[in-house]
Amino acid sequence: MKIRVPATSANLGPGFDSCGIALSMYLSVEVLGDSEQWEIIHTLGEDIPTDEKNLLVQTALKLAPSLAPKKLKMTSTIPLTRGLGSSSSVIVAGIELANRLGNLNLSELRKVELATQIEGHPDNVAPAICGDFVVACHFSERKENSVNYVKHYFPECDIIAFIPNTELLTSKSRGVLPENLPYKEAVKASAVANVMIAAVLNGNLPLAGKMMQEDRWHEIYRGKLVPHLSGIRQICKEEGAYGCFLSGAGPTILILTPAEKTERIIKILNALDSRAQVEHLSIDREGVQVF
């Protein structure tokens, strides 16, 4: 059995802690066979445990404590601590591992609820499970029916990921956000998010991209931690991209662009920072898959 989970990008600008898309980068977990103890073969770095301390196994055992140990192989093209849902993908894979090995017969909704409880919010885990574009909300004070979400088709476009060679921890990125927002400012921020979502649903990427760049929830505060954001935004404007936004908490920036603009924008971004990774991606429509 092999489980595949896509990378994700959360927020899309003003859809803070609510909107997300699934992307064509993947975490894969292969069950190789039975074992006396949990063993995970990977080349993801010395800091990633290879035993039951791994987040993958911890998540699975939280749902199905009596699972028999397995030998697993984990591979991933999702960069760590870059705002592309690397930890969410492991959580989703762990839930699916427990679901299949433990015969839990979890519904999609239940998977989203469980993943949200573990992760804290649904913006990454929901698209990782469902695929495509997902808008979700989470009521942490409720024990049941705590998550509501809608999956919708994201309009066809090319997606370019500019991935800096520096990590940005979510804890640090959240640390610069204000504890409160004035009521009038919150109303404006909400209106921008509403128009962005409506534009996506209507297939209007020029308007959606414009609204993605008008975020008032988090990017105006996190911009100082991601100095390349303003420069890439200017490149997008000059080269005719739909728009760009911080992927999750950053530092990765995603650019939405017509296909005919992609090659030139990638060339410009490669010249902007030779240490950065520039990837040509697309929307993953399926979410978590089992083969």
Rank of each mutant, 00 (worst) to 15 (best):
Met1Ala: 13
Lys2Val: 11
Val5Ile: 15
Leu12Asp: 02
Leu12Ile: 04
Pro14Leu: 04
Gly15Ser: 05
Gly15Tyr: 00
Asp17Thr: 02
Cys19Gln: 03
Cys19Ala: 11
Leu23Val: 06
Val29Gln: 06
Val31Phe: 08
Leu32Ser: 06
Gly33Arg: 13
Asp34Tyr: 08
Glu36Thr: 14
Glu39Leu: 13
Ile40Asn: 09
Ile41Val: 15
His42Asn: 10
Thr43Arg: 15
Thr43Ser: 15
Leu44Phe: 03
Leu44Lys: 08
Leu44Asp: 08
Asp47Trp: 12
Thr50Ser: 14
Asp51Met: 05
Asp51Tyr: 10
Asp51Phe: 06
Asn54Pro: 01
Leu56Asn: 07
Gln58Val: 07
Leu61Ile: 09
Lys62Tyr: 14
Pro65Val: 07
Pro65Leu: 09
Ser66Phe: 11
Pro69Leu: 12
Lys71Asn: 05
Lys71Arg: 15
Ser76Phe: 10
Ser76Cys: 13
Leu80Asn: 10
Ile95Thr: 05
Ile95Ser: 05
Ala98His: 07
Ala98Lys: 06
Ala98Leu: 01
Asn99Met: 07
Leu104Tyr: 09
Asn105Pro: 03
Leu114Tyr: 07
Gln117Asp: 11
Ile118Arg: 04
Gly120Asp: 03
Pro122Lys: 00
Asp123Ser: 00
Val125Cys: 01
Ala126Lys: 01
Gly131Met: 05
Asp132Lys: 00
Phe133Leu: 14
Phe133Arg: 03
Ala136Ser: 12
Ser146Trp: 06
Asn148Pro: 00
Phe154Ile: 02
Cys157Trp: 04
Ile163Gln: 06
Ile163Lys: 07
Ser171Glu: 15
Lys172Cys: 00
Arg174Thr: 03
Val176Ala: 10
Pro178Gly: 04
Glu179Cys: 11
Tyr183Ile: 13
Lys184Asn: 14
Glu185Thr: 14
Ala186Pro: 03
Ala186His: 09
Val192Cys: 10
Ala193Lys: 00
Ala193Thr: 01
Ala198Gly: 10
Asn202Lys: 11
Asn202Arg: 11
Leu207Ala: 11
Leu207Glu: 12
Met212Asn: 00
Tyr221Leu: 04
Leu225Cys: 08
Leu225Ile: 12
Val226Thr: 00
Val226Leu: 03
Ile232Tyr: 02
Ile232Gln: 01
Ile235Tyr: 13
Ile235Cys: 08
Glu238Asn: 11
Glu239Gly: 02
Gly240Asp: 09
Phe245Val: 05
Phe245Thr: 05
Gly248Glu: 07
Gly250Trp: 00
Gly250His: 01
Gly250Thr: 00
Pro251Asn: 08
Pro251Ile: 00
Pro258Gly: 07
Glu260Asn: 13
Glu260Lys: 10
Lys261Ser: 09
Glu263Ala: 15
Ile266Arg: 10
Lys267Arg: 15
Lys267Tyr: 15
Ala271Ile: 01
Ala271Thr: 08
Ser274Asp: 14
Val278Met: 06
His280Pro: 11
Leu281Met: 09
Ser282Leu: 07
Gln289Asp: 05
Gln289Cys: 12
